[in-house]
Design a binder for these strands. Structure first.
Lengths: 231, 231, 231, 231
DNA sequence: TATGAATGAGTGTTCATTCAT
DNA sequence: TATGAATGAACACTCATTCAT
């Protein structure tokens, strides 16, 4: 298998390092204090690791490459993470948690259930589908069986909460008469399935056949809520 | 990462060794001819490789383990496959092709479109979801980005054909008035999404929360076709 | 290191197999008897092995290639030779012996010593320099330290006899007054050295700078015998 | 082939570790700086590799043995050389270059041409014949055909320059009347041949029949320049 | 705290040798 | 006698981890 160093830049939510505050021209310990510097390094490592893990998978990723991409020495990684495995596990947590936080910070619960779900889908589209985070989801699907702790974490923090939230929305929709099919509440997975498929499709088949995820999700919601009168 | 050799038995479609000719209760199989033996060995390697690749992913799988599981010497693998990569690529072909063949051997095209799709879903449930083949699908999702040839093959042989077949069925359903939502034909992925989600769920989360895939697919079809009067 | 199968044909003194006697169109055991067939196979193996050993050296030569080149199965080699090492050792004997025999079948001892030596040099030029046999000499130089038995054999059969023969000629030349330098008899190597250098040169540097070995040997003999009046 | 690790000590020109600074009788060398240590290690690897390659040839040499002999871990070799092949190629350069430099640092160009050549021969005797460097020459002859880059390098740096230098000396000798045979200038190889033969002889046949290389070279020079009056 | 040279266990691949046919 | 599939020891090369500086 060929190794072509992926050179994609990384505009990451975890990056806390872009600080204009550092006084230029200082060789020893610039402006920020020790703790900040450490946090920056750690963030750089996390970013680099995510890129590499996504590009090659856990086993095929070399710490050398992560270090190079993060701009630190290989040994430095071990000052922040116990080993490669726990780096991967922590990485997933570090990246996933803020996303979940943002997605669950639901918009004002005003309006129809469909509006709520559409808002949610819009966020998901923007934050996940076709982004690094989407790739991370695929990575979790890929490595889950070898990292039960990751699968557990992901199930606990993302899947089960997502399913519960969707179920609550569906039940609300049924109560309000927006959703006809009462059985849907038993399988919120059905509501989420096209979004997941979109995530995977973008990773694997986008270059064979592009997919208009937004439009697909709209069609799906039409199916569930009945066609919209106007847009 | 700990390495516990997964010892799952393997009831495989690729196994050609179930010879009815062998006297039952015989320990030493009398051997048959050279070509047959070679085919058996190759099948054993394919089966073993599939188990190992599914359990560990491509990079973390050791040829030593495949050989041990297949009951052959390591060198023997190289009599059948050029190297680890091409073994993986051929493996996918070898396992996928007959499944596709079987799934596309559509049941008697009589009855309603819903009956057709239900028959198809039933096959998929039996042949893929929760089986080794399902795990293979997850494996392809996992390794696809690193094996463009595999992703290409899978798209060409499975995805595009599956999408096309589903679209044809959907259009038929629309024509016959069984399906109301005309836009569905533009996104057959929606029809398939829950089945794919079921495949992944069984691999990753079954132990956290079992999923009645059959029931879920029924609910999904009810959503698309309208609730069934009787079952 | 790349492996380009050397495809040079092999017009070898050891080949005894080119027999027009075999009745065409016979599948089982053609004309010649069993022993002859075996001898042919053995000769084919020896020829093929020589080519391969010369092209790659002992360690880098694969028995597979020898077998392929000889047109026999790999196992067949083991019917003729105990193992790779002893094949190499026997090979050297098999190829060297007839050459020595031919070279030592000295031409009629008439004429001057210089004539004798020139005749000898002519043979050497024709039979060794720039030929497969020359390459074999280089091979012996190359593998000698790892094959003491080969070095021993070569010293015993070729070097010591060659040196002795040269010394005898030199002494005759001194006696007859053809050679002035009496000390030359103590170092017959000096007489042979340019011929050896020519052998090596053709193997290694011919493509950088071609060497007219014949002319060089003449100049060398002029040095020893004094310039010739006419040619 | 039996594998007996040759344990010959190695007084090498490449060894840079003989540090006069180290307190005598000290077991643990105090280390000095990083760069020095790296250079020492590299030199140790080069020395060890030369020993092993000379003893076994390229293909039969194991990197494990080189590492063991050099007192480093196997991986360390790869910090200094890309792979086995390039190690061999660099090795030849590293060892040959300083020898050439020393040999071409000609002695005071005073005196007769014969004196010059004798000085040169003396150096060659001391520096090459019967030394590790001589063995290396034999190794180059052995592996040249499989390492064109080595053969090229050797031709360019050693052979062609040596031939040119010898030709210049011969022509000077002819001009001054020291050398009678005018054709010799066309084949400087003749002048060098006995020295090369001596190199090979010491490697292969010394134990069968010792050769007094110094005396042989003197006889050869007598042949070319005419016998010396006194020594 | 940060470095990166050094380590050595681990793995894909090769190939001499065997042996059932 | 001849075959060539099968074997498994051997080896080049990699890379996670350590540790002296």
């Amino acid at each position: 298998m060929t190794r072509k160093p992926t050179q994609t830049a990384l505009p990451s939510a975890t990056r806390a390092s872009a600080k204009g505050a550092a006084p230029a021209g200082n060789v020893e310990v610039p402006a920020s204090n020790r703790a900040t510097r450490a946090a920056e390094r750690r963030a750089a490592i996390v970013d680099a690791a995510m890129e590499e893990f996504i590009a090659r998978g856990f086993a095929a990723t070399r710490l050398d490459d992560i270090a190079k991409r993060a701009g630190v020495a290989k040994g430095t990684i071990y000052l922040h993470f116990r080993d490669k495995e726990s780096m991967f596990e922590e990485l997933v947590r570090i990246v996933i948690v803020p996303v979940v936080a943002r997605l669950t910070a639901l918009p004002p619960p005003a309006g129809s259930v469909r509006d709520l779900i559409e808002a949610f889908a819009g966020n998901f589209l923007k934050e996940v589908i076709g982004t690094r985070r989407g790739d991370l989801v695929r990575l979790i699907v890929a490595e889950g069986p070898r990292f039960p702790s990751v699968a557990d974490f992901y199930y606990r923090e993302v899947v089960s909460r997502g399913i519960a939230a969707m179920r609550a929305l569906i039940e609300l929709g049924i109560t309000r008469g927006e959703i006809r099919d009462k059985e849907l509440a038993r399988y919120p997975q059905i509501l989420v399935a096209p979004a997941m498929i979109a995530v995977i499709w973008q990773s694997l088949f986008a270059r064979h056949a592009p997919l208009d995820a937004q439009d697909m999700l709209r069609v799906h919601l039409d199916l569930i809520f009945g066609e919209r009168r106007t847009t």
